[in-house]
Design a binder for these strands. Structure first.
Length: 102
DNA sequence: AGCCTGACAGATA
DNA sequence: GTATCTGCCAGGC
């Protein structure tokens, strides 16, 4: 179990992801400078209910396997760039957010 | 200690 | 394009 503080930090970053952008699990871990992608995934699976969880995706641009349909629907509705023509993966080169402050 | 699990990532075939 | 393997970090048994 990660510390409460770690959970809070992960959630605070996810909350700040603007509509139309996404971050990979590994990106968040790298930004925090602690833990790894799997730790972020763990936090999301247990505490991600109150944040825009659909903006956290795998590094290859595909949402987590267990809720792919729901996430893609939400992302498309907020204008996230997808790779055409398939449209099943996000265009990471355009959608990835660096967690740069406003 | 040893092995398994996970909303992961990168390299390789 | 897919399938597999290994590495990763933290935790459970």
């Amino acid at each position: 179990m990660p510390s409460e503080e770690y959970v809070e930090r992960v959630l605070s970053v996810v909350e700040r992801i603007p509509p139309g952008s996404v971050m990979a699990y590994g990106d968040i871990a790298e930004y925090l400078g602690f833990g790894g992608p799997r730790q972020v995934g763990w936090v999301m699976s247990h505490y991600g209910g109150g944040v825009p969880w659909w903006r956290v995706v795998r590094a290859d641009g595909r949402p987590a396997d267990c809720h792919a349909g729901e996430a893609i629907r939400r992302l498309r509705s907020e204008g996230t760039p997808f790779r055409e023509p398939a449209g099943d993966r996000i265009d990471m080169s355009r959608a990835r957010w660096d967690c740069q402050p406003d």
